[in-house]
Write a protein that binds this DNA or RNA. Structure first.
Length: 474
RNA sequence: GCCGGGUUGGCCGAGCGGUUCAGGCAGCGGGCUGCAGACCCGUGGACGGGGGUUCGAAUCCCCCACCCGGCUCCA
């Protein structure tokens, strides 16, 4: 796209819309908090990862060279606990759910991540950061682990607006060995029978926050452009990351743009495993096309909450069918040699719509407005189709390119509105129709169906048990 | 308690000082149609409540109500 275009994004750090200017020209480094792999991913995860996938697709479409890094939390109490309950090794359990996560993401066409980094592969970096934080006096050792002293980092709270002294309500009793209730763990000592590692400070496991800075600093260095995640992670997780990283490197700001997505709720409450109100991605995909899910998730601005109801997926499905129809109508138009005046007007409108689509995306990733422009494009195509629908090959290519630009950015996988099961059903319908013809002794038509299917590589065989079919290898 | 965010027509949602109040779903009327579907045209006096600022507010300010998230499990 155009080089002069200006993207604006909402930065949680400044609580305002900012012009997007990467640290290194067209190079962009983005880190997004990945899942803790102890169970299937649900629609809340889908919401977040579909959004960052869309952001990544958009930035690349705008000619940014993006490196998108995501961590996989494979070391965590929940994993350890579930593994213990099931008598398995924690890492083996984690690998299984990591595999499911990748399957779900692939199904949702989330393909933009360059590197998935497992926390368990970064113990050396974690040790190094803790060591330096101890040396610099930002961390201290107690009998239960190593903690970050938030009083050594005056900026603590700058992302979330929280003031440590105001945090009086604690859902979990603070460890009494800590200097301040708000100090967070860098390393937690654990009993030797539990899964863990030998560290310079005892046997145990790393704290939750340190894995992300270990991974991101290892790959991106002391500063990078975008850090993403859901809003629930802003405090304390992202706040802790800032404290660790800026204390460790001495460079501010650690991250230039902090971007957070709103939560997906169910009847007003957060969808979560602990509340038991979750719908897994694979459950939803059993009923709905991935494109329908993406349209549903992208139909609301990324920072607003989305309240999930199955009925809304039905609505999204109807919307999606409208897009498919419009795109189909375009493909159905008669090709002519000479462009008429109406075609010129039509193409002009298509260009205008495409431009508005990108303007919407540039305006803090307004995917709802971008989708509206996609529907405008559909409307324009349908109208033109209805009134004659003749177009030159060049003209149609231009319209197709407008569609594919939008599909690419929104991550809609088009061009195959069917799947294997639809092919099987289609063939069986033909076989049924043919059976009726044969009963009526209309063999000419029956034979023609068989012959024409063979032409496209589908072979029918009439047997005493009925008609069978197979795909002939060509 | 403190810190974030939300409340727009039957449903979902953009808009965030001034074009006819985007767009989608559902509905209604018409066109097209063997039937159905798709498609096209037309159709909807919404902005949680109360004040205020303004020539003009869904949009800015103040107060209130309700809902959600965070306050060391959570995308």
């Amino acid at each position: 796209m155009t080089a002069f275009a200006e993207i604006r994004v909402y930065n949680t750090l400044s609580k305002s819309l900012e012009k997007f200017v990467p640290l290194h020209g067209k190079r962009v480094f983005m880190f997004v908090c990945g899942p803790t792999v102890y169970d299937y991913s649900h629609l809340g995860h889908a919401r977040t990862y579909v959004f960052y996938d869309t952001l990544a697709r958009f930035l690349r479409k705008m000619d940014y060279s993006l490196f998108y890094l995501q961590n996989i939390t494979d070391v965590d109490d929940k994993i350890v606990n579930r593994a213990r309950d099931e008598g398995r090794h924690p890492l083996e359990l984690a690998r299984e759910f990591e595999r499911y996560y990748h399957e779900d993401m692939a199904a949702l066409n989330v393909t933009s991540v360059n590197l998935y980094a497992r926390a368990s592969d970064y113990l050396p970096e974690i040790f190094e950061q803790i060591k330096v934080l101890l040396e610099k006096g930002h961390a201290y050792l107690t009998g239960t682990g190593v903690y970050f002293d938030i009083t050594t980092f005056p900026d603590y709270g700058k992302l979330s607006g929280q003031r440590p002294e105001e945090l009086r309500v604690h859902r979990i009793e603070p460890d009494p060995t800590k200097r301040n209730p708000g100090d967070f763990a860098l390393w937690r000592n654990r009993p030797r029978e539990e899964f863990g590692w030998e560290s310079p400070w005892g046997y145990g496991r790393p704290g939750w926050h340190i894995e992300d800075t270990a991974i991101s600093i290892k790959h991106f260095g002391r500063q990078y452009d975008i850090h993403g995640g859901a809003i629930e992670l802003a405090f304390p997780h992202h706040e802790a990351e800032i404290a660790q990283a800026e204390s460790y490197t001495g460079v501010k700001p650690f991250v230039k743009y902090w971007i957070h997505t709103g939560l997906l709720t169910v009847e007003g409450e957060k969808m979560s495993k602990s509340l038991g109100n979750f719908v897994t991605i694979r459950e939803a995909l059993k009923e709905y096309d991935p494109n329908v899910l993406r349209i549903f998730l992208l139909s609301r601005h990324y920072r607003s909450p989305i309240d999930f109801r199955w009925e809304l997926l039905d609505q999204a499905k109807s919307s999606y069918e409208r897009i498919l129809n419009g795109y189909g109508n375009l493909m159905d138009m008669d090709i002519v040699e000479e462009a008429g005046e109406r075609e010129a007007i039509f193409l002009e409108e298509v260009g205008r719509i495409r431009r508005r689509f990108f303007e919407a995306m540039m305006d803090d990733l307004n995917t709802a407005e971008a989708l509206a422009q996609l529907f405008e494009l559909v409307r324009a195509v349908n109208s033109y189709y209805e009134e004659g629908g003749q177009i030159t090959a060049v003209g149609r290519t231009e319209v197709i390119s407008a569609f594919t630009d939008m599909f690419d950015v929104l991550g809609l996988r088009m061009g195959r509105g069917y799947d294997e099961s639809m092919l099987r059903n289609l063939v069986s319908i033909l076989i049924d129709v043919r059976a009726v013809l044969r009963r009526r002794k209309e063999y000419d038509l029956a034979d023609e169906i068989r012959a024409r299917l063979r032409e496209i590589g589908i072979e029918l065989q009439d047997t005493p048990e009925g008609t069978k079919w197979r795909i002939k290898k060509s």
